[in-house]
Design a protein around this nucleic acid. Structure first.
Length: 834
DNA sequence: GACCTGGAAGTAAAC
DNA sequence: ATGTTTACTTCCAGG
């Protein structure tokens, strides 16, 4: 049973001090503050992602615009938001009051579910975990994230209401079938889940049994959750909303405002946000986030349990599971955690900040990359296991250069893998895996609606962790898209990256934050089976004359696969495109032997960066891969080394370097400031810049779209350039103990500014402002633009009008989407410019 | 019996 | 407005 979730505003109690306040009611206060400090960063993040929108209204001002919207104040974006939606008072009370008895609750859950859902199962598990877990309170979050609940609930809810299932939801949605989404509010909730499900109610599905039937199946889930019958009951449900509310309270003021709206909405309805549906949903969803599970007993979390996340906002409930999971050994257990936690400072950089992978003596590296494909599981499914490594086993992450005796906490969350700056993925959440097969202890925490898995990094293990405890949960697109601030589209947005972070406290009182992102991971069943994917290319460069053969290693290559080389202008316009010859006889499902086509201009004085992709048909393209034509005199370079290219970047860590593949655009890089830097800066930049083409990068993306997009780079922040490589180190964010980040230096505030805007800061974050800026690096960074956009657009953006507009269109192809993003970028730029 | 998986049916959204 | 295709979710079943 899950039980109810309580909302936890807090999230992670762990950090007492800091967070506490939050928890208590912190939120509110927090929020307030945020505004001030608000660095954009945090907010941005928070906002961005989550709900933000609601928030914005409030404080945003500062940030302003664009991004701000998103932000809500609270860091807890989602939660907040949602919460916010609720009026504060209400919330609290509401909690009580609100409780949506069943229906809503459920729905909310749904909403939540999305996010939450994530957990949902997890949640379940969580719970268990918690239990097992022990120690830490972290969050107790009840399920962790509210999210979970949602999921469950949704269905459950539905179930519950058999008849209406939906009904319960009452809401409109109910008609589940109908268009769930439409009605955002309730429906949404309900509906959402339902959405497909809708069917549930009406649904087509056969499953249904009894009348209500439809849902029943859901139960299954619920089963997990609560089998419960009472649909309503399902813990989740209750939890959700109610929970949320309460929690919410804690959250930010802005949130409150939002909440109010939301609440008012009603719970209704919409308040004003104008964004009815989404908003509500959002709110709802958010709420979920917030909520914690209580029931279970202990699980609930005490506030303390909540983990402390950095941002208050972030802190949401966590799951705690114990280490248990694995057996293991692990010395690590609880204790270790605790220590680590210490490190965590309240003001940790928002998850969407770009951080370097190395700084000074420290270097966070992914020793073993995850496989390029990992089918994520839905809340309605059972876990599909932990992400594995290409060669078997699991990804491995290690912090080099750390000689202290204190253990640290390695954070892991699921980030985006598009062309934009790295940020938490709205449609995927990390899922904690426990069991006999798991040797690494971990526990979940929520940061602004983003689940973060915290794993101990122990000196005795050489600060090396085997990531066998992380799965990936897919949230329903309909649930996420309904969120107020969410502008991203889930459709075809199925690539993610595992993002690892570590925060190192230094004697000086500062905290060095490092981040590394893995190679992209395709998470959809279909994409994994059908889309061609290039894991490795034997050549990175070639003389303009071409003619050399390049071996591509990857997946899903077909006899009729084509390899297309493309050159795009920064603005996305196609400058050149040609199909390379493939030696069919030498090609296999996992490899293609390609003859490098001659470049359009045989007289090169400088290297020219182009892209190529493998195409299995109109809509089945791999991501863009980088390739460089060099003047005849320049020797070609073999790919593997990739580092070459990326090297600098690499440092940063994210796997960029490695990525043989696709470039991700900046994003890949993103992890680190570097990326940005890159973009802006010299060497890489160049490449990257070209890469920009990437936008199109998405191979898939239709060129056309790309074209539209403005050149990302242009936007690069000015500053960036200067820093070029060193960047990394500098990039790293250092925050003072107090919690605020200071830029290590490099980044000019200016850039920050942009970022801020773009991102919504979270309340907590606020504190950082300046420093964050750094992080934000993104902002400026070339990609930045994109990133910003991203955020803006995606998250929340309030963004600039422009962005706002753009919003979720389906990308014909993801790439395109991203490309579109590019557009956003442009917009962003504007924003930046204000 | 729980957890993983792979495969695929059913549904909704995009063309 | 309708039919087709594509992508997303939910189920099912086997290991």
């Amino acid at each position: 049973m899950r039980e109810s979730f309580l909302s936890l505003p807090l999230g992670n109690p762990c950090l007492p001090s800091q967070y506490h306040s939050l928890q208590s009611s912190p939120s509110i206060s927090v929020s307030i503050s945020e505004p001030h400090s608000y660095d954009s960063q945090d907010d941005m993040r928070a906002a961005g992602y989550y709900s933000s929108s609601g928030v914005r209204p409030n404080g945003a001002p500062t940030l302003e615009s664009p991004r701000i919207e998103i932000t809500a104040y609270g860091q807890f974006p989602e939660d907040e938001v949602e919460e916010s939606n609720l009026p504060v008072a209400k919330r609290v009370n509401s909690i009580v009051t609100l409780t949506l008895p069943s229906g809503d609750g459920y729905r909310d859950p749904t909403c939540l579910s999305p996010a939450s859902s994530v957990s949902s199962r997890s949640g379940l598990s969580d719970a268990s975990s918690y239990e097992s877990s022990f120690s830490y309170n972290y969050d107790n979050s009840p399920q962790n994230s509210p999210w979970q609940s949602p999921s469950v609930s949704p269905k459950g809810s539905t179930l519950a209401l058999p008849g209406d299932g939906c009904a319960s939801g009452g809401s409109p949605r109910h008609s589940p079938s109908t268009s769930p989404r439409t009605s955002v509010t309730d429906d949404t909730w309900i509906g959402q889940r339902g959405s497909r499900p809708n069917s549930p109610c009406g649904a087509k599905r056969k499953y249904s049994f009894n009348g209500s039937g439809a849902t029943q199946k859901h139960f299954p889930y619920s089963p997990n959750h609560s089998p419960g019958p009472s649909p309503q009951t399902s813990p989740r449900l209750s939890i959700t909303e109610e929970t949320w509310l309460p929690n919410t309270n804690q959250y930010t003021n802005s949130a409150i405002l939002a909440a109010i709206n939301a609440l008012t909405t009603d719970g209704v309805a919409d308040l004003g946000e104008g964004i009815p549906m989404k908003a509500r949903k959002t709110s709802v969803e958010h709420n979920p986030t917030v909520s914690l599970k209580v029931e279970p007993g202990g699980e609930e979390l005490s506030p303390r349990e909540l983990c402390q996340d950095e941002h208050p906002a972030n802190r949401l409930p966590l799951k705690k599971e114990g280490y248990c999971g694995g057996f293991l050994d692990v010395p690590q257990h609880p204790y270790s955690w605790s220590k680590p936690k210490q490190y965590v400072s309240p003001s940790l950089p928002a998850l969407d900040w770009q951080l370097p992978s190395s700084s000074g003596p420290y270097s966070l590296q992914i020793e073993v990359q995850p496989k390029s494909h990992h089918r994520a599981h839905y809340e309605t499914e059972g876990s599909r296991g932990a992400v594995k490594a290409l060669a078997g086993g699991h990804p491995v992450v290690q912090l080099h250069g750390y000689v202290e005796s204190e253990p640290l906490t390695l954070q892991l969350f699921i980030g985006t893998a598009d062309d934009r700056l790295l940020r938490p993925h709205a449609f995927y959440q990390v899922h904690r895996i426990t069991g006999k097969t798991v040797s690494t202890p971990s526990h979940e925490a929520l940061h602004n609606n983003t689940k973060v898995l915290e794993i101990p990094l122990l000196p005795e293990n050489n600060m090396r962790a085997i990531i066998d405890c992380a799965g990936i949960l897919k949230l329903r697109n309909s649930d996420i898209e309904l969120r107020k601030g969410e502008t991203d589209i889930g459709r075809k947005n199925t690539r993610v990256r595992m993002v690892f972070r570590v925060h190192i406290n230094q004697a000086t009182g500062r905290t060095v934050s490092l981040q590394v992102a893995s190679n992209p991971i395709e998470c959809s069943q279909r994409s994994a089976q059908e889309l061609p994917l290039v894991d490795k290319q034997s050549l990175e460069t070639s003389p303009a004359a071409g003619g050399e053969r390049m071996l591509l290693d990857g997946h899903n290559f077909q006899h009729d696969s084509k390899v297309v080389f493309v050159e795009k202008a920064q603005d996305g316009h196609h400058l050149w495109e040609t199909e390379a010859k493939i030696e069919r006889d030498a090609s296999k499902p996992n490899s293609l032997l390609v003859e490098i086509p001659p470049y359009r201009n045989q007289r090169l004085s400088t290297p020219v960066h182009v892209n190529f992709y493998v195409c299995n048909g109109k809509r089945k393209r791999s991501q863009y891969q980088r390739f460089t034509y060099v003047p005849a005199s320049v020797p070609t370079i073999k790919t593997e080394p990739r580092d070459d290219y990326d090297a600098p970047l690499v440092c940063t860590g994210s796997g960029l370097a490695l990525h043989p593949k696709p470039f991700y655009p900046p994003q890949v890089v993103t992890p680190m400031m570097p990326s940005e830097l890159r973009s802006c800066v010299g060497p890489f930049p160049v490449n990257q810049q070209r890469l920009p083409a990437k936008p199109s990068s998405s191979p898939n993306a239709s060129p056309k779209l790309h074209d539209l997009s403005p050149p990302p780079f242009s936007k690069c922040l000015p500053p960036g350039p200067a820093l070029p490589q060193s960047p990394v180190p500098h990039v790293s964010i250092i925050q003072e103990a107090p919690g605020r980040y200071q830029p290590s230096g490099l980044y000019p505030p200016s850039s920050c500014s942009s970022s801020p805007t773009s991102q919504p800061s979270t309340p907590t974050d606020a504190s950082f402002s300046p420093a964050h800026c750094l992080t934000p690096a993104q902002p400026g960074s070339t990609s930045p633009g994109a990133q910003q956009h991203t955020k803006v657009a995606e998250r929340g953006g309030s963004s600039p009008p422009t962005l706002a507009v753009s919003i979720k269109q389906e990308p014909q192809e993801l790439d395109q989407m991203y490309l579109d993003d590019g557009e956003e970028v442009s917009v962003v730029t504007q924003n930046d410019g204000f």
